[in-house]
């Protein structure tokens, strides 16, 4: 495949981003441990960040102009901060659930009450 022989450019970074994203989705789909699901969310956000940075990095384009310019790393920084906030809230919910149900199995979180 030409990926192996070309100098590293945008397609390579987008592939890594895609792999991270898909692994995150797989984690969210298959893990029964609530914290495992949270790890999947982190992977998804990281895949998106890799894409943002690749599209904003002027080194990967022969003309030196990146499609996103300075917005790439800036948006990725915003995503990182929002992911931290979301992880904190999600973990608090998981801890509350663990205290009331004595388990973190998401399969058993099937009732709206309590």
């Amino acid at each position: 495949m030409n990926l192996f022989f070309d100098p590293v450019g945008l397609p390579h970074y987008l592939l890594v981003g895609a792999v991270l994203f898909v692994c995150g989705i797989l984690c969210m789909m298959t893990k029964r441990n609530a914290i495992g699901v949270l790890m999947g969310v982190e992977l998804v956000l990281n895949g998106a960040n890799v894409n943002l940075v690749a599209l904003g990095s002027p080194m990967l384009y022969p003309s030196g102009v990146a499609p996103l310019g300075l917005e790439g790393p800036l948006t990725a920084a915003f995503v990182i901060v929002l992911a931290a906030a979301e992880a904190a809230v999600a973990l608090a919910i998981v801890l509350s659930y663990y205290r009331t149900a004595a388990t973190i199995d998401v399969d058993q979180a099937s009732q709206l009450k309590g």
Partner: peptide
């Protein structure tokens, strides 16, 4: 991934 960011020229990120 942080290493990838350093490599892609976004050390701050």
């Amino acid at each position: 991934v942080a290493g990838l960011f350093f490599l892609a020229g976004a050390p701050l990120l």
